[in-house]
Design a protein around this nucleic acid. Structure first.
Length: 572
RNA sequence: UGCCCUGUGGUGUAACUGGCUAACACGUCUGACUCUGGAUCAGAAAAGUCUAGGUUCGAGUCCUAGCAGGGCAACCA
């Protein structure tokens, strides 16, 4: 990856790193980390952080650790660590065995806490949580010091030891850093370092009943692992003074990790917070974390996105500190760009209407040869059966010509891809409903693909499937999960869930060419003129199920105004 | 009424760190080509850089004062 990336302008983090490298900081090492909390599945926003931290390590010949930030046992679970591992690997990154856990460092963190108490820089506070919160004050006004703030070192040591021994119930006491209750930065107003939780931890079991807070764990973990550049999102910006303060208390020598913040990824027509994604799953608005409508990595994977297309997307959105909302269309552009190169072409009629070729022999079947992918000669060829009765898309036929409609109309010609040019002679309708039952056509035997008679100019070429050879397959058509670009744009008294798109999934039965029954389930496909599709894991040999990854760009849909909401972000 | 961060075409990111006509990508619009209205190719429209002052031969880049948006008051990360 990233072959033409060399001439690209550096982003602001790369600039900082190159400056650090020039200055010989930290012996000119580059060592990053990706620190997920195992309390949910990772999504495309995390992909940005993953590509950044792992990508920087790759670019500067450094390393990137995977570190699970598991300091809160009540929300965390092994289910999540497994999925996170799998998803990062799938995205194409490797931590080369450097898989760590903040919980690996609980002993060291405890030891450092004791040191902090001995220095007179931490104290045990018995104040109730609500009261601590109240005494902390508000951003515009200084806080008030806790009555416990001036306990003796010995008393603090004793109390902390007993917290550790499990002598006190949850929430009864905390260990706090003694910094500055009147700091304009709320995080410096004697932040809580340890809290009591008699909870089972997915790794340390019941060894601990006190657990360190993020601020006491993160910088130290970075320090222990020799991290040089600790990249995180903007909301941690206000934590940085505390990150540095904690490090200054425990660090020896000149090595220091440095926290740098960047703006998180936002995409329109979707939500990206773990809390909300969890809600979508728990409240059954989607079928699971890997529902193809979810912006999770496993959801996108099931939807048919490739790792390469996601990496390209992350690369395309850039990196800066300003808040941003990326148009969904860019993600779609990136998959189409990749899938166009690798997807095998197949013919599938999504909304079939029957065509009868009046002058074609009743029992004849011809095998029409065609390529698997015109973009990739190495993908080979295949044959497709052709016969008297075919299916074509309802949308490829109009009884009356429309000046911009190039496809089949009564009295006119259209080319059948890889087969013959046909002319419509009339339609048969259901006498009651008026619906078209079948379209009657004649074919021109001279125009079979490959023959010189086929060289005639025809306005359009459409896809088709032979009726008697057709496979019935299930196709799941996905659309955006939300009907508003900003899911939070709601009426009074409603929440973001009111903007869920009720039509985000529709399931149809389509007519497919028989080859699909023999295709590799791992392959990506382009159903000619319809979009990119992939096998869903619900498929069996008896029942093929496909997910639509994304539609093709569609000029006619744009002209006719029938374009799905699912594509093209409306410009101005 | 505090502190921190951020303001560049519709969207996102650039601009050799003060120097040519503000670039690139997505999107939009033309046109060419095409046995996918896909792909490909050629081209166009679209910002004068949040505002107002200032420094300078020269400012998107520096200074001052505003304005706007975001973040911060979890025993979450």
């Amino acid at each position: 990856m990233g072959t033409e990336e060399n001439n690209k302008a550096l982003n602001f983090i790369e600039e900082i790193i190159e400056e650090d490298l020039r200055d010989g900081k930290n012996n000119s090492r580059v060592h990053t980390r990706f620190p997920p909390e195992p309390n949910g599945y990772i999504h495309i926003g995390h992909a940005k952080a993953i590509c950044l931290s792992f990508g920087i390590a790759l670019k500067y010949n450094g390393k990137c650790n995977l570190r699970f930030d598991d300091t809160n046992p009540v929300t965390e679970d092994v289910e999540y660590v497994d999925s996170i591992r799998e998803d990062i690997h799938w995205l194409g990154f490797d931590w080369e065995g450097r898989e760590y856990y903040a919980s690996d460092y609980f002993d060291k963190l405890y030891e450092w806490a004791i040191k902090l108490i001995q220095m007179g820089k931490a104290y045990v506070d018995d104040t109730k949580a609500e009261e601590i919160s109240e005494l902390r004050g508000v951003p515009t006004q200084p806080g008030v010091e806790s009555p416990c703030r001036n306990r003796s070192v010995d008393e603090n040591l004793d109390l902390f030891q007993r917290m550790h021994n499990g002598e006190f119930p949850d929430g009864s006491r905390v260990l706090r850093a003694k910094i500055d209750m009147s700091s304009p930065n709320m995080h410096m107003r004697d932040p809580v370092l340890y809290r009591i939780k008699h909870a089972h931890h997915h790794r340390t079991g019941d060894k601990w009943c006190i657990y360190p807070m993020y601020d006491w764990a993160h910088g130290q973990s970075d320090y222990i692992e020799g991290i040089t550049h600790s990249l995180c999102t903007l909301e941690f910006e206000v934590h940085r003074p505390l990150y540095d303060w904690c490090l200054d208390q425990i660090a020896e020598g000149t090595y220091r990790p440095r926290q740098i913040e960047f703006a998180r990824l936002n995409i329109d027509y979707t939500v990206m917070s773990k809390r909300r994604l969890l809600q979508l799953v728990n409240e059954r608005h989607v079928k699971g974390w890997d529902d193809p409508r979810m912006p999770t990595i496993c959801g996108l994977r099931r939807r048919g996105y490739t790792a390469e297309s996601i990496r390209n997307f992350v690369n395309a959105v850039g990196l800066a500190k300003r808040e941003n909302i990326i148009g969904y269309g860019l993600l779609e552009f990136c998959v189409r760009e990749h899938l166009n190169k690798i997807a095998l072409r197949r013919m599938v009629v999504l909304n079939p209407v029957k065509v009868i070729l009046e002058n074609y022999p009743d029992d004849k079947t011809e095998m029409m040869a065609t390529v698997n992918n015109p973009e990739d000669p190495a993908s080979g060829t295949r044959t497709v059966p052709f016969s008297k009765e075919l299916y074509i898309e309802q949308g490829d036929f109009m009884e009356e010509a429309h000046k911009k409609f190039y496809r089949l109309t009564t009295g006119n010609e259209v080319r059948l891809k890889n087969a013959y040019i046909i002319r419509c002679t009339g339609v048969a309708k259901d006498p009651v409903t008026g619906m078209i039952k079948e379209i009657r056509c004649t074919y021109d035997p001279e125009t079979r693909s490959g023959l010189t008679g086929a060289n005639r100019k025809v306005k359009a070429t459409i896809h088709w499937v032979s009726a008697k050879h057709a496979l019935d397959v299930e196709i799941r058509l996905y659309d955006r999960l939300f009907s508003k670009a900003d899911p939070d744009d709601t009426e009074e008294g409603q929440n973001w869930k009111a903007n869920l798109n009720p039509d985000s999934l529709s399931v149809i039965t389509a007519k497919a060419e028989p080859q699909l029954a023999h295709d590799n389930p791992e392959n990506k496909f382009q159903f000619l003129r319809m979009g990119y599709f992939c096998f869903d894991k619900d498929s069996s040999s008896q029942h093929l199920v496909f997910n639509r990854t994304v539609t093709l760009k569609d000029e006619w849909a744009k002209i006719s105004g029938t374009r799905d909401e699912g594509q093209g972000t409306s410009g101005a």
